[in-house]
């Protein structure tokens, strides 16, 4: 489902030097596979997810999603692939504050292959326990509820690959467990691959498959002395 090869990304530092952030030789996920990626803050894991999602253009290497090579596509083709195949759960939710809960999910779906399916969006939100909050705005919801909206939005299109960036980082233990359970459950139902990054050991412990980003990301390794 996901194959990463020789993926590299560097940024220019304020001092003008090029600093490599991501250098992943190989990484793969099969359909339905659920992997947790351990990574400390500043380890480049969000950049890694952005590169996979095509939000950022890589300096080199390949990202292939469901047979389509993301890194070889034009920007508009990457937008389409992202809308069709990916669900992205942001650490900071990134909900559209001026839109209702239902509109957030419907709008997320509208760019994908199924289009704006209000009934499905409502059902998804109902499953997240937000059926009574459809017309509320994000600011009227608790943090846990906002995160569930973000989850519903990412999963509503039945994506083949779900990327979750610290999805429980802003939640208390109980809500974190609930949110994580829902994400994993829906991914299992849709046979979607799930790549979750976190530095929370309790979250990581729930996954059978765990990888350490510091190990797979050559850029963060100490140079040999």
């Amino acid at each position: 489902m996901l194959a990463v090869a020789d993926l590299r990304k560097s940024f220019r530092s304020p001092e003008g030097e090029r600093v490599e952030i991501v250098n992943v030789a190989t990484f793969a996920l099969a359909a339905g596979e659920q992997v947790a990626l351990r990574g400390e803050s500043g380890s480049g894991k969000t950049t890694f997810l952005h590169l996979i999602a095509g939000i950022l253009a890589a300096d080199g290497g390949r990202v292939t999603i469901d047979g389509a090579e993301m890194t070889a596509l034009s920007e508009s083709q990457r937008d389409r692939l992202r809308a069709e195949k990916l669900g992205y759960i942001f650490q900071t939710f990134n909900l559209l504050q001026g839109y209702t809960v239902l509109e957030n999910v419907v709008l997320g779906m509208s760019f994908g292959p199924r289009g704006a399916d209000r009934a499905h969006a409502q059902a998804m939100l109902g499953r997240m326990g937000l059926g009574h909050r459809l017309d509320h705005f994000p600011r009227q919801l608790s943090t846990g509820q906002q995160q569930r909206v973000a989850v519903a939005r990412a999963l509503a299109n039945r994506p083949k690959l779900v990327l979750a960036d610290e999805p429980t980082g802003n939640l208390d233990r109980r809500h974190a467990r609930e949110a994580l359970g829902l994400i994993r459950e829906v991914c299992r139902e849709n046979n979607a691959a799930l790549l979750l990054v976190s530095h929370d050991e309790e979250v990581l412990a729930q996954f059978e498959q765990r990888r350490d980003f510091a190990v797979i990301n050559e850029a963060m390794k100490e140079p040999a002395r």
Partner: peptide, 14 residues
């Protein structure tokens, strides 16, 4: 930010 979110959700630049 809203525009960036829309882009991240798959909205094309155009």
């Amino acid at each position: 930010r809203d525009l960036a979110i829309l882009r991240a959700l798959g909205a094309k630049r155009r």
